[in-house]
Simulated scan of single mutants.
Amino acid sequence: MDDMVKMKGEAELAHLLQKSLKRKRYLIVLDDIWSCEVWDGVRQCFPTEDNAGSRILLTTRNKEVACYAGTENLSMQINFMDQDESWNLFKSVAFANVALPSRFETIGKQIAEKCHGLPLTTAVVAGLLKSKRAIEDWENVAKDVKSFVTKDPDERCSRVLRLSYNHLTSDLKTCLLHFGIFLEDSEIPVKRLVRSWMAEGLLKLENDLEGEAGKCFQELVDRCLVLICKKSRDGTKFRSCKVHDLIYDLCVTEFQRENILIMNNIVLGVSERGNLSMQKMQPFKCVTGDEINYCPYGLYRALLTPVHRQLRDHDNNDLLKRTRSILTFYPKDSIYGPKLELIHFKLLKVLDLSDIVIASSLYRY
């Protein structure tokens, strides 16, 4: 990925990829292809001849895509876990190799069975019960799981995730929702996350904020709501993390439903003179993950104080005055330098420039 490659268009890049793969044997894995149109666009980048033994493996949550892309009946549908697999996963998370009375095992098997073989649902519910050692709590969760289960797998997961969310303390809820301000499916440095919690004032303790933040993070990990991406070499520290896209959707939905805060994106564009300029703040709901990928000059996410009236998207001054925090999501492979006039944000409290400075920094005003 040198500067020459970065300046080329998609058609040129597709041609380069085809050329580099010709007459070679390769295995390419494409994760989470969401439509037939996307697959049609991507498949044009690969050679169609002189590649004996090469394979392309794709995953999707859409059965139509799998059937459409599969050749010679090579598509495979992953089955749900059977009762034994579900129970083994459940007890490995909830029991953590600790022997419990037979009553817990009996109820645990009932709960695992009601998760209907979905690994995500099973792991989340088991994580919820990991810290609960009262039989009444397990019985209540068994009742809740049954009432939250629906026929649609994605909806079932969402409902169970909401169940897990509802069982969190107010502090843990706030910390989990904070994942919604980061880009979807992004790998987040743990240090940046906990410092953001501290700077935003999400933790009630005035002393040892880092220790309290660490405890909150560990509990969210134990509940299988946060996934660990990287650890330190000795395995004792967490370096980066992320949340499942269903949990991310839950965070964004709760932000909007509870009117906790409003998220807006400030996308940087190029002026006629060739200099970077700040475009009008765009509502968060209108800038999806796909569109964000086409912001090569930097993306700033602004957190605004909510108001009891409809957001006036056309009034940029109104948005600027209510902005309390700004976080940067700056493409690491961009060849441009970011520019943002902060003088417009009179009430700015937190400025996170982690992505655009050598040493991560988080300022609180």
Rank of each mutant, 00 (worst) to 15 (best):
A123Q: 08
A123M: 07
A123Y: 01
V124N: 06
V124I: 07
V125C: 02
V125Y: 03
A126K: 06
G127R: 00
L128G: 03
S131G: 05
K132T: 10
K132P: 04
K132F: 09
A134H: 13
I135F: 01
E136Y: 14
W138L: 02
V141C: 01
A142V: 03
D144W: 04
D144F: 05
D144A: 10
S147A: 14
F148T: 12
K151V: 14
D152A: 11
D152F: 04
E155C: 11
E155V: 10
E155K: 12
R156S: 15
R156K: 12
R156D: 08
C157P: 08
V160M: 12
L161Q: 07
L161A: 06
L161V: 13
R162T: 07
L163I: 04
S164D: 03
S164Y: 01
Y165K: 07
H167Y: 11
L168F: 08
L168Q: 03
L172D: 12
K173H: 08
K173E: 06
C175R: 04
L176M: 09
L176A: 05
L177R: 13
L177M: 14
L177H: 07
H178R: 13
H178C: 12
F179P: 01
F179I: 02
F182H: 04
F182W: 00
F182Q: 02
L183P: 06
E184G: 13
S186M: 05
S186C: 10
E187I: 15
I188L: 08
I188D: 08
P189E: 08
P189Y: 05
V190E: 04
V190T: 12
K191T: 08
R192D: 09
L193Y: 00
R195P: 06
R195W: 09
W197G: 03
A199L: 09
E200S: 08
L205Y: 11
L205P: 11
E206C: 11
